[in-house]
Design a protein around this nucleic acid. Sequence first.
DNA 1: ATCAATGCAAATAATTTGCAAAAAG
DNA 2: CTTTTTGCAAATTATTTGCATTGAT
Lengths: 157, 157
Amino acid sequence: MLANTKATAKQRFMEFLSRKSLRVTAQRQAIIETVFSTDKHFTAEQLLEWSRERDRSVSRATVYRTLPLLTESGLVREMDFGKDCKFYDPNYAEHPNHNHIICQDCEKIVEFESDKIARLEDEISHKLGFAIKTQRLQITATCEELKKLGACKHKSG
Amino acid sequence: MLANTKATAKQRFMEFLSRKSLRVTAQRQAIIETVFSTDKHFTAEQLLEWSRERDRSVSRATVYRTLPLLTESGLVREMDFGKDCKFYDPNYAEHPNHNHIICQDCEKIVEFESDKIARLEDEISHKLGFAIKTQRLQITATCEELKKLGACKHKSG
DNA sequence: ATCAATGCAAATAATTTGCAAAAAG
DNA sequence: CTTTTTGCAAATTATTTGCATTGAT
């Protein structure tokens, strides 16, 4: 079997830190491990809570100071789902070009990738004189259950 | 010449208010006229300032209470450009399906429409069991100037 | 008349920041 | 040793809300 040459998200973030001469503290490690051991979207507050389960010494300030590093690295992306606070998506390390479908009522979120859409985006952007750096497609929809039953069985609350 | 049967954005919003038995106050009129006489994206604070130029009695609270009505009507959409506060886009009355390209450095914003992308979105959503309600595509890019010169001549500041 | 809408000022809530102490390289 | 990072608590900032009053229908 060939050696796995693909760096993990955690390793890639460590390299990012090192490239910027930033230090690997215990608190940062707890945060990083939390972020890259889930594929769920999370808020700053959730990240604080989960990180504290690994290391009680993680403070809210450190979480808020680390989040911009994570987004700057490109491995995590800030998401606006129209809620009161921002969510963060850790799946950009694995799937740098994925899109989101958000169910209006049950708030289920499905991620998908589409080369066809990506190609059209490139083509159109180029025609308009731009070179794409990142892209974000969010679709708000209703799911089958909702359409058929008038209410979505996954509805929370 | 045939009569113009297409309702203006302002008229459509008035109908929205009426449908919900909401009242047409002087302050709301100032806000509505402000919103639908520009195609620029604006913040709540800018909307307050501009509306006050039409009617000094418009208060911040009323602006914040009116914005959700505007977005609920579908004629205006809340936009997250990664800034400290939200922007609002009044062009959804005219172009209900448009997308955005944001230049990373000069912050120029270009709007465009694409039936091809819209069709793909529908198709993919349907396959995944969803029916699209709204869609939002934001592309972050660099513009020609930036690519060629290393800095964008439209750069603000 | 009735009930929605207003301004104001106080409240809320997410995020940021100054600072002295602690820790990484 | 030097410089970054930390936690804490205070500060900031966008947005929301309670309330008495005003105004639209």
